[in-house]
Amino acid sequence: MKRTRDRWRDLTGWLFVSPWLLGFLLFTLYPILASLYYSFCDYRVLSPPKWVGLSNYVALLTDRDYFLPSLGNTLFMLIELPLALVIGLAMALLLNHKIPGIGVFRTIYYLPSVMPVVAVAVLWLWVLNPQYGLLNAILTPVLAPLGLQPPGWLADPAWAKPAFIMMDLWAVGGSVVIYLASLQNVPAHLYEAAEIDGASAWHKTIHITLPMISPVIFYNLVMGVIWTFQYFTQTFIMTQGGPQNATLFYALYLFYNAFRDFRMGYACAMAWILFLLTLIATLIVFRTSARWVYYEGERR
């Protein structure tokens, strides 16, 4: 039998973690489980939920007007991941040189990613403005001699998504910093050994740098996939899903269902499908990772 003193100690421990524990149970676990239940209900928020079985899921998967296009729009944004990878990595490699004032450059390139998303969105509304925007002010003199008009960006269904991708790439600094940190961790003796063997800069990058930082690339990729599926703030502020639903992303449509149309059951079903999709996509990345991610100290 435990001594009273130990019991007291246990109790104290539980009491100290209780604020977090209660918070987790009440505000995280309970809502998650409740949303699973609601996803099988017709739930209008203002009146009690009614069980409807799978009909929310069936309605979603056959919705060619909004649900499936919103999923398609979101998947389109995955194009951003390889672009962010290449650009982020290239920038990290450039910022890894030991030249005077490199700290200033690192700060400049990192700056966009510390700005709040809402501020960035409002700023880019100006940059992308088809009439007076900075971007088209640069493009117009270039394209005019060729008889071309610059795109309407957010006003044009075909260019709205690429405009978002461009805007996000501007704030790629967050991942650059992570790449940079891992680049600094690549042991210098590997490069020295390679140089003695006569390896070129290109070979050193391909055969030393990339394998050594592959866990970080992997991390950024997984986070990118999750982040893409949850794409919301930019479109909520900048386009509200238009023009012609071209930027109606998954999370935005979920939000509309829940808070504009009082279809909370439908929205919960969307949330669970989103969870499954994110899970599958992440698992795929994990599965392939065995082939290209190299961990130090790990045996093949």
């Binding site: 403005n129 088809p130 009439q131 007076y132 309407g152 957010l154 006003a155 044009d156 023009p243």
Partner: peptide, 9 residues
């Protein structure tokens, strides 16, 4: 497209 682009400004 033209009208929309103008309106955006």
């Amino acid at each position: 497209e033209e009208v929309n682009a103008f309106e955006a400004g």
